[in-house]
Computed example of a mutant assay.
Amino acid sequence: MARRGKRYLEVAQKVDRTREYSPKEAMELAVQTARARFDETVEVALKLGVDPRHADQQVRGTVVLPEGTGKSVRVAVFAKGEKAREAEQAGADLVGAEELVTAVQGGQIDFDVAIATPDMMGLVGRLGRILGPRGLMPNPKAGTVTNDVGKAIREFKAGKVEFRTSKEAGVHVPIGKVSFGSERLLRNFRALLDAIVRAKPAAAKGQYLRRVAVSTTMGPGIRVEPQSVMEWLAEG
């Protein structure tokens, strides 16, 4: 078992592992327990009541966090002609067609989001084994295969994030930085959870939100009571 540092053990004492907190309590506690010398990222971890082995129970989508992510997002766009010029004007960090595909095949993956126009997918498909495992493969459901590249770029730069279930029905999404403070983080948390609840598959049965937790990069996990989350979202 890995040994925990003194700083971690000190802040972990503030978290009661035997209880589940309300969203507001959890976010305030996350900010209080962040003690690293850098601006830690706050992440949400969920366990959903779905079976991702079935196509009709997979959960995937995007949401624009109202407060942004606090991270500078590098966007690569696979496009040519007028769409390439549109991408450059919208602030894309990398734009190209065959030459960009070749660069990625050579190991140059200096971007956080990849967007492609539909006509480029035949070419981009060659990168499936490279971008797929990294969660970077353009996909229509994630809004990253589109002809409206300008809008897509601006949204991801402004704080659009993708969520999708893992093989274990888990979802992990960053919602901002500790420096945001609990109120701004709560607004992002609400936007994310609302989008995930709205994305509930019709085939999913029983309790949808099984487990909810928040944590900072170096901090302890803080469990959130799923029912309190649903009631909080219903309040609007």
Rank of each mutant, 00 (worst) to 15 (best):
A2E: 10
R4F: 03
G5D: 02
K6E: 14
K6N: 07
Y8A: 02
K14P: 04
D16H: 11
R17L: 14
T18R: 15
R19K: 15
E20G: 13
A26H: 14
L29P: 04
A30C: 11
R35V: 15
R35S: 15
R37H: 14
D39C: 08
D39A: 13
E40Q: 14
A55S: 14
V59K: 04
R60C: 00
V63D: 05
V63Q: 10
E67F: 08
T69D: 14
G70H: 06
V73M: 09
V73W: 04
R74W: 01
A76T: 00
V77G: 04
V77P: 08
F78N: 00
E82Y: 11
E82A: 14
K83V: 06
A84N: 02
A87R: 08
E88P: 01
Q89L: 15
A90E: 10
G91W: 09
A97R: 03
E98Q: 13
E99A: 08
V101H: 02
Q105Y: 06
Q105V: 00
G106K: 05
I109D: 06
D110A: 15
F111N: 09
D112H: 11
A114E: 10
A114H: 08
T117P: 09
P118R: 06
R126W: 04
L127I: 03
R134V: 03
M137R: 05
N139F: 00
K141S: 01
T146Q: 08
N147T: 11
A152D: 03
A152N: 12
A158E: 15
A158I: 05
T165P: 11
K167H: 10
A169S: 12
G170H: 02
I175L: 02
G176V: 09
V178P: 04
S179T: 05
R184F: 02
R184P: 05
R184Q: 13
L185I: 00
L185S: 04
L186N: 05
R187M: 07
N188I: 10
N188Q: 07
F189Q: 03
L193R: 03
L193P: 04
A195W: 06
I196Y: 06
R198Q: 07
R198A: 08
A199R: 03
A202N: 05
K205V: 05
G206V: 00
Q207L: 04
Q207M: 01
L209D: 06
R210E: 13
V214C: 14
V214Y: 03
S215W: 07
T216L: 10
T216D: 11
G219A: 03
G219Q: 01
G221L: 10
I222N: 09
E225Y: 11
V229S: 13
E231R: 14
L233P: 13
L233Q: 11
A234Q: 15
E235Y: 10
